[in-house]
Amino acid sequence: MSGEAAEIVFDHATKRYAGRADFAVDHLSLTIPAGEICVLVGPSGGGKTTAMKMVNRLIDITEGDITIAGRSVRSLDVIELRRGIGYVIQQIGLFPHMTVAGNVATVPRLLGWDRARIDARVRELLELVCLDPDTDHSRYPAQLSGGQRQRVGLARAMAADPPVMLMDEPFGAIDPITRERLQDEFLRLHKEVRKTVIFVTHDIDEAIKIGDRIAILREGGRLAQYDTPEQILASPADDFVARFVGADRGLKRLALRTLADVQLGAVNGTSPTDPRCTSSMTLRDALSLMLTEGAKQVVAVDDAGRPVGTLSIEHVSDLLGPNA
């Protein structure tokens, strides 16, 4: 199973660790459409890692099932299953005795690819994750920075072009600036390669940014809500979700859209003192601009500086309102 993305279905997947009364994951049911990124988010101990590791059977399913492209993970040979799933963990787990190229080539070698094919693939992947195939190729993990190591980890997971990727807090141990850059790179990369991704994080902002869909897990491994970021922010299923996404969920929602995404007001009647911005600005930043400039509206301008529309505070609040 390589290449084409695959749909993943959790069907009442349940995990109860031996000697524990409570569930780690409690009858989890959700469908991840092929090629989408599903983020598992929730408080620590909520069962995110457990749910994810049941997919590549690093943890055995107690009850229920998980299918990839319609085939139960239980029915597949575990080694074959894992070789067809990219796996990235927070600690990265790069092999310190192997070079960058050696690390990336691990699974292709296990699969018995020939040298030329492996070399070509390694180069391709290093370029894909913004590393230099010529210089970084033969360096050792000890010679890399944290961000570079995470890139190698990502390249290693994608080496055999698996249709499914599992990522457990991959950017958790990285400084905020590098993390943001890696998130952007990852989203760009995902547009190119379109794999089905299960991405675990405890950071709701990361979840909103990365996820096509977000599954919020609460204590005891229960699914609190599974929906698009927009829907989760607009209508949290319960108090727990509302608290988890934060009181500023309105602002977070605004951050999901740019001025180009909404119907702007008429240009006539703008005052020269109204602040200007481009259409690619998020609604959240536009609101911030109004508040800091003490203006009632902002004027969106095109590349030539000509006004194309306006956005007022009332307009913003309508967009967040119950009828939006």
């Binding site: 074959e80 894992r82 799933i85 963990i89 600690q91 787990g93 699974v107 296990l110």
Partner: peptide, 18 residues
């Protein structure tokens, strides 16, 4: 040996002997 390495190796589909 760092358990994360073993975990990574298992996740990639290495057999115990590998």
């Amino acid at each position: 040996i760092d358990p994360d390495l073993i975990e990574a190796a298992r996740g990639m589909g290495m057999r115990p002997l590998e």
